[in-house]
Amino acid sequence: MDQSQRAPGGLIFYALVYLLFLYAPILLLPLFAFNDSAVIALPLSGFTLRWFDVLWDTTALHAALYNSLIIAATTSVLSTCLGILAARAAARYPIPGKRGIVGFIMVPLVLPEVIVGISLLVVLIQLGMSLSLWTVIMGHVLVCTPFSVAILGAAFNNMDASLEEASMDLGESALGTFRRIILPLAAPGILASMLVAFTISFDEFIIAFFLTGTDATLPVYIWSQLRFPARLPGMMALGFLMVLMSFALLLTAEYLRRRSSRLISGDEAEGASLFFDAASGMR
């Protein structure tokens, strides 16, 4: 591709302003998290760590955090397993009606989450099941699986088929080949998928809002607190910590994804980001 041209100045300026727009809320977060005032407004009054102390002393928050961690960890494992099966099948085997099947698995990407939440709620009510952490996990696995399929699809599609053939020719069984060749090669992709699913589930609100029983998840807890002005500075501090955690998880996932594309195809530039994989997966 021709990279000799430089971008026009106006376009670069636009890109920077746009980035500022994208990051505006997140940049405000630390300002208010460390601001020594109970009101979330400018001008700032001074530095404090007391909102973090408040978080440390709120036990309801700890229970919600624990629930969210369990849900996110379980969701990341389950959706990655479902993702491995679907992505591998789609990359390697002829499947009658493949386009329709894969397309259907990807539908939760574009469906409003309210619809996913209430339709699951209706089923649970009709079956007389009570709401629990598991009902939230059911919904979260559904919305995280498409992301796993997209990320793993990129990993499996770029894989050199000759390695696999060599293994089979040397007398390894299909299962042995999968375990000894394919899984190790796809390992960074698998980890990336788990991290992304974890991040999505940990942050997901709507489905959890409809499907939690008495055990609130962290976003559901935050939602309940946003109504009380006195609780807002604490929520800013919490949001700040959550942003830091998500950044760490996502940067790790991106690093793994790059490693995986280098491992598999020897080309780091292939693909461009996790989200690129997800976006290509949508089509």
């Binding site: 809320p25 405000l28 946003l226």
Partner: peptide, 22 residues
């Protein structure tokens, strides 16, 4: 692409709420 996408995976509710602050 990483710069563009990263903010959108994080604390959705707080992000929406901050627009109220803005």
């Amino acid at each position: 692409l990483l710069l563009i996408t990263i903010p959108f995976w994080t604390s959705y509710l707080v992000r929406i709420f901050l627009w109220k602050v803005i």
